[in-house]
Amino acid sequence: MPVVMDADRIARALTRIAHEILEHNHGIAGVALVGVRSRGVPLARRIAATLGSVSGEEVPTGALDITLYRDDLMRAAVGPQPLVRKTEIPFSIDNRTIVLVDDVLYTGRTTRAALDALIDFGRPKAIQLVVLVDRGHRELPIKADYVGKNVPTSRKESVRVRLQEIDGVDEVTVEAVE
């Protein structure tokens, strides 16, 4: 179970991403963060905190649950449904630059669902994508704007992101899947 990022690496990657966001958008005016549930939400909060301390302004942050937009829902004739959690975007996304934050970019399907979901909330000026880990194997034409770390993997492996807020520890591991 090789650890590809430890707490320190994760913190540095997020700080770097925060600065890249500032640079790319010429400040944080009109920028808002939306974390994809579950682990995109604490990542978005951490980036927002860094942005806030650097710029002195608070960046609006929301949480997006994409379950109802998944393209693998209802494919199986039987079986339990994924748990639906609340989406909380307590601000208008119209004409804002929305920075979508997720933990892992893999096939791109979660991001596709998140884009669909976001667009149902309004008409943002632009949508940018932050991921902590890009593990490759895209199945859709989707590319991240900010990447914590590129981790080459095989499809037989699984990338697990653990975060203090949810899992009690900060680390990214690559695990073999049976």
Partner: peptide
Amino acid sequence: MDAVAAAAAL
């Protein structure tokens, strides 16, 4: 979607 989603079933 490799995240193992919590399952909800009746």
